[in-house]
Amino acid sequence: MASSDSTASVPDLPSKPPAWANGSPSVRRPAFQWAPYLFLLPTVGLLFLFSLYPMLYGVWMSLRTTDVIHGTSTFVGLNNYLQLFHDPQFGLSVLNTAWYTLTVVPLIVAGSIAIAVFLRDSRPARLLARVGFYVPFVLSPVVVATSWKWLLNEDLGVINGFLKWAGLATIPWLSSDFSARVSVVVATAWNLVGFYMLMVLAGLSQISAEFYEAARIEGATGWHRFWHITLPMLRPTILLVVILATIHATQAFETILLLTDGGPGGATRLVVQNMYQSAFGRLQPGYGVAQAVVLLPVILFVAWLQMRLFKQEGVI
């Protein structure tokens, strides 16, 4: 293992897997073999059954209307999609998802860089941070939501308790549009930022001290060093953080569901929750899936970006 001081050693990632087992080495002609396919079967089978097939089935479903009670469904063409355009609820959830992603992701990126740069020079803090900053990330959405609900509780929570005690006005954290949005963003950023902070710390440890030494000799200020050395050298790490945080942010649906239930009045209802309500609450699975299909290109685009990044880094 890495010595306890270096925050993290990135495992060696050879760019090309060595070729092995093209038949026995004495035989030149690469023989067809079943073994790799059989080894892949469990993963690919699960992937097919619970990802690929549902994706295609979802597209098919989105073209139909299902009567859940009688178990019948009829083909309606693009009706579900057309209906989406006239559904203010869906429009609101798209808007919510947009502002949510556009605030959470930059907050996580800026936060993880700021905290990592602040902690990098302090050895005890770095050791402590490896545990402390990771803890929120290993907690379940249910626990995260419960903790924040308690902290932000309007009548009984400690923050409003403090405000009251200090003679200030209390804040309706989860029941007014704006503060509920802020609460949701802060709670998710808190949940995820430590994980990315550790990625940035690992990236920082790869930057050679010589660069900073040279800059110091030339009289560069701390801010200059950050702007002209740290940030450019961190570029690959930051890109990865942006992509992963975007994927992550979509998954925060569970925390938000428990924290605000999409309220007040739909102010924190994201597309995924809207879909969940259409499908399971109002029993319109076709309409629900149509929303997922609209979301899918965005997600595939992000996945594609990540793939390109991995390729650039020579991981694939």
Binding site: S51, P54, Y57, T250, P285, V289, I299, A303
Partner: peptide, 10 residues
């Protein structure tokens, strides 16, 4: 990488 959340209905 496509989150299960998105695929939950199918």
């Amino acid at each position: 990488l496509v989150p299960l959340q998105v695929l939950m209905v199918p």
